[in-house]
Amino acid sequence: MQTLANLVKGHEFPATEFELTSGWVGGYMAAVEDRALAASRPDAVPPMAIAALSIRALLERAGLPPGAIHVGQELAFRRAVSVGQRLSVAARVASRGERAGWVLMGVDLSVAVGKDEVMSARAVVTFPAAEGAA
């Protein structure tokens, strides 16, 4: 599998679809123990679950290079999603720069239910330039 190190600015990842299964949500909830929405929106999953799922989609298409560090994250939540909904994830390399032997890469992510975007994000990672082939 390719890694982020091989990708150039503008690279678009193939779209990925996920069903927000109760099993996956249960695993996520066991990790983060976020019950803040439970009282008001018992059907909704925590918004950061969508973010975790989008990262999963990304990593299934391109692994992290050795030594990679997640340095920043931007998130914009549009609306909550519920167990059983089907999400599509689109991603592209929005920026890539190199300084002092390290690559700094921004990857834009968009998660939608049907045609309605429910979350957009930018993940910023850095990794040793020597790992890059682009």
Binding site: S40, Q73, L75, F77
Partner: peptide, 29 residues
Amino acid sequence: MLVLAYLSEMLTSAFGERWVDGGRMKARF
């Protein structure tokens, strides 16, 4: 992102559905 989920939970507790339905965040690890 696990630690960031704690920040989001704090914001959900503080702002309720306003955070979930329109919140934005720019975070640095």
